[in-house]
Amino acid sequence: MKKTDTGLLTTGKTPSIYTSKTKSRLLLIFGVVLALYFLSTYQTNSTPGELVIGLPNLFALLAKFFPPNLEVLVASSVVAAFSETIQMAIIATTVAAILCVPLSLLGAQNITTNKYLYGFMRFFLNVLRTIPDIVLALIFVGIFGLGVFPGILALIIFSLGILAKLISETIESVDMNPLEAMQASGAGTIQMIYYGLVPQVLPQFSSLVLYVFEINIRASVVLGLVGAGGIGLVLDQQIRLYNLPNAMAIIIGIFILVVMIEYVSNKIREAIV
């Protein structure tokens, strides 16, 4: 390799690092990705051209949200709605943490040795996790009417899928030797789980429950948009009434809540594991 006066490396006659076959393959992949991108942007009216034209307009419209009317944040109805959001997340996380215990034992290959039961459980948990939280909320609102109860139910089901999967993976990574020793000394299955398994997974369990609490806070913020209780409901109203500075204040409030909960939860999780 020699340097040209522009300072760039030229490959000259030296062999290239990539074979011509990989090169053409990379080119093909690149072409496909690019084509898909243009198709996607065309279909969604977000081509780079539209983006460039639209951006100044976008900023002009976003400017209507400012300055945020921060006084809204101390209004009693808003404080109550924020409290409701947190309470929904606490209840849902607690219930999910309890319900996930049997589910994650059934979904762990080293505990549930029945292939079919385990396979079914895994399949069930995977399907559960693909249903969006909002869809669950809409269904429960359809059944129970507007309010916090359908919201809590939606959060429980939604977080149960995530939590049970993560915890069954933790259970699968456990050291099975002590359980073998207990079995050899005549302990029953429940005793083996309680004395051999629980001490090994408890720190991870607490950490994952806190993680799911963080997820539930974010989810519970938006559930109100479909009438399932919490601050989302107030945000939706303010936007419908075109009180954009109020809406922005609530969005800032949500931002602060999420950041605070994540900070505290992270600190606790660091201390546990």
Binding site: D175, N177, P178, E180, A181, Q183, A184, S185, G186, Y195, G196, P199, Q200, L202, P203
Partner: peptide, 17 residues
């Protein structure tokens, strides 16, 4: 099993307990 005790190569203790 309660009248037959067993000792293992890897001790098989619950390490966190």
């Amino acid at each position: 099993r309660t009248k037959v005790g067993m000792i293992f190569q890897n001790y098989n203790l619950v390490k966190r307990s």
